[in-house]
Design a protein around this nucleic acid. Structure first.
Length: 422
RNA sequence: GGAGAGAUGGCGGAGUGGUCGAUCGCGCUCGUCUUGAAAACGAGAGAACUAACGUUCCGAGGGUUCGAAUCCCUCUCUCUCCUCCA
C-alpha cells in the first residue's frame, strides 16, 4: 500500500502520478477524507484517555472515600465516551484502510505513459528467429505426436486448462526447473522451498487480495490459499521483521507450482500449455535498500535475460506502460521468448520493482544505521522463467522436420545426456 | 485425532489489579582502561501514531474495572506425550 503521509503531504503529486495509470483523483480524496475525520476523533479520544490515566493514578492514592467515589463516577462517564469514540476511530480507520488498499502503486517517472498494452515499448530484441525449411508446428501438435503432452487425460483428471506431461516431456520440465535454480544460485540467489498454500494474511500482504480474489484458489475449511506465484510466500518470509542492513540485498529464488483460476481470461489461450490453472515457475525475489532498487531492477532483468540467452532462443524485452503495469509495480519489464509454431512472442518473465508497496503492507523494515529508526525495504520480483511457456519456446524453436525436438545444450546434462526427444 | 503445558522486549526469563513499557541475565551500542584485544568498570538502547503534549502496544480479538501484562470469554499459534502417517 501507499504511504498515507505521502497522500497527506503531496496529494497533488500523488493524483497526477496515478492519473498516468488511469486512476481518478477522487480515489485519493476518498482516503484523505476518512483520514482527516479519523485524526479529529483520535485527538479527542486521546485527550480523554490522558485524563483518565491521570485521574486513575490519583484515585489509587486517595484516602477520602467520598472524593474517591466522585472521581470514580466521573471516570466511568469518561470511560463510556472513550469506548464510543474508540469505535468511531476503528470504523474510520477501516474505511480509510480499504480506500488506501484500493490505490495502486505510483508508476516510476521513467515509465512510458499509455492506456493499455499498445503503449508498451520494446527495448531490445536479441537473437534472430530461425529460418525453417519446413512449416514449424505449434507445440500442442508436437507434444501430442511425441506423446509427451496429454491434453485429453489432463481434462479427464482435472478439467479444462489441465494437462499431463509424460516421459521426456515431464523430464524436460524437471530439467528446466533444476537448471534455472542452479543458474540463479550462481547469480547470487539463495534457494528456498516454501509451502504452496498460505494464510489469508499473506495474500493481503503480497497484495493479491483484495484485487485478485477471483483468480485465487481457496480452501475454505482451513482458510488456506493456493499460491498464484512464489512471490506470495517469499514476500511473507520476512513479514514483521527488521532486517539487518548489512545483509541487504537479500536475494531469493524459489520453485513453486502456481495456481490460478483464470476467470479473467476465459476463452483466451485455451490451446496448449500456455495458460493453465496450474503451472510451474521459478521466481527471483529481492529485499533491497531503497537507494538501490532501480539498479537492482536492472540486475534482475539481466539475470532473467541470461536464462533466455543461454537457452539460445530469440527474446525481446519490453518496458510496460503505465496502463499495462501490475497493480503493485512502479516499473515492470516483460521478457518474451519467440515461439515460431504459434507465431507469437510469449511472456516468460515479468520483472518488477514494487518499492515499499509490499514491504509496507507486510511490515518489512531495516535500520539504515545501527541506531537509526527502521525504514521499509524495497522489494522486487521477477520470474526466473515461467516453465510451460519456456517449454513451448523450446519445443517450437528446437523442432526438427521429422517432429523430433533437439534438447538445448544447457539442459542435456539435466536429462541424462539426452540430445533429441523423438 | 486424544491428553497436558505454554505464548512477555534481539534471546532467556521475572512479574497475578494501581509510577510496569515492564526486575534481572545474556547479547548489542558507546565510553574509560589497553600498543591492540579480552576482562573489568561506566553509560545507552523497544515499536507505532503525533509538530508537540500525549496515546497505544506484554500472541490476536472481545469483556469486567475508575484503572488490566495481571481477572473472565473466544480464537490462533508453539511445545511435550500418545495415536496415525509419506
Amino acid at each position: 500500500m501507499l504511504d498515507i503521509r505521502l497522500l497527506r503531504e503531496q496529494p497533488d503529486v500523488v493524483k497526477a502520478t496515478l492519473a498516468k495509470a488511469g486512476v481518478e483523483a477522487s480515489a485519493v480524496d476518498a482516503v484523505l477524507v476518512f483520514d482527516e475525520k479519523r485524526r479529529g476523533v483520535l485527538a479527542e479520544v486521546e485527550r480523554l484517555k490522558a485524563l483518565r490515566n491521570t485521574v486513575s493514578k490519583e484515585i489509587s492514592t486517595l484516602k477520602d472515600a467520598d472524593v474517591r467515589n466522585t472521581k470514580i463516577a466521573e471516570m466511568r462517564v469518561v470511560g463510556d465516551q472513550i469506548s464510543t469514540l474508540d469505535k468511531q476511530v476503528a470504523e474510520l480507520e477501516a474505511a480509510q484502510q480499504a480506500a488506501l488498499l484500493d490505490l495502486r502503486n505510483l508508476p516510476h517517472e521513467s515509465v512510458p505513459v499509455g492506456a493499455d498494452e499498445e503503449g508498451n515499448v520494446v527495448l531490445q530484441t536479441i537473437g534472430t528467429p530461425r529460418q525453417f525449411d519446413f512449416a514449424p508446428r505449434p507445440h500442442w501438435e508436437l507434444g501430442e505426436s511425441l506423446d509427451i503432452i496429454d491434453f485429453e487425460r489432463g481434462v479427464k483428471v482435472s478439467g479444462s486448462r489441465f494437462y499431463i506431461l509424460k516421459g521426456k516431456g515431464a523430464r524436460l520440465q524437471r530439467a528446466l526447473i533444476q537448471w534455472l535454480l542452479d543458474l540463479h544460485g550462481n547469480q547470487g540467489y539463495h534457494e528456498v522451498y516454501t509451502p504452496f498454500v498460505v494464510k489469508e494474511q499473506c495474500m493481503w500482504g503480497a497484495r493479491q487480495l483484495p484485487k485478485f480474489r477471483d483468480n485465487l484458489y481457496h480452501d475454505a475449511e482451513e482458510d488456506l490459499w493456493l499460491v498464484p506465484t512464489a512471490e506470495v510466500p517469499v514476500t511473507n518470509l520476512h513479514r514483521d521483521e527488521i532486517l539487518d542492513a548489512t545483509q541487504l540485498p537479500i536475494n531469493y529464488c524459489a520453485y513453486t507450482p502456481c495456481f490460478r483460476r483464470e476467470k479473467m481470461s476465459a476463452g483466451r489461450d485455451v490451446r496448449g500449455i500456455k495458460r493453465g490453472h496450474q503451472f510451474d515457475k521459478v521466481e527471483m525475489y529481492k529485499f533491497v535498500h531503497p537507494d538501490t532498487s532501480y539498479a537492482e531492477l536492472e540486475k534482475l532483468r539481466q539475470d532473467a535475460e541470461e536464462s533466455c540467452r543461454l537457452l539460445g532462443i530469440p527474446y525481446r524485452t519490453k518496458v510496460l506502460c503505465t496502463g499495462d503495469m501490475g497493480f503493485a509495480s512502479t516499473k515492470t519489464y516483460d521478457i518474451e521468448l519467440w515461439a515460431p509454431g504459434q507465431d507469437e512472442w510469449l511472456e516468460v518473465s515479468s520483472c518488477s520493482n514494487v518499492e515499499s508497496f509490499q514491504a509496507r503492507s507486510t511490515n518489512i523494515r531495516f535500520r539504515p544505521e545501527p541506531t537509526a529508526k527502521p525504514e521499509f525495504v524495497h522489494t522486487l520480483n521477477g520470474s526466473g522463467l515461467g516453465i510451460p511457456r519456456t517449454m513451448i519456446a523450446i519445443m517450437e524453436n528446437y523442432q526438427n522436420a521429422d517432429g523430433s525436438i533437439t534438447v538445448p545444450e544447457v539442459l542435456r546434462s539435466y536429462m541424462g545426456g539426452l540430445e533429441v526427444i523423438k
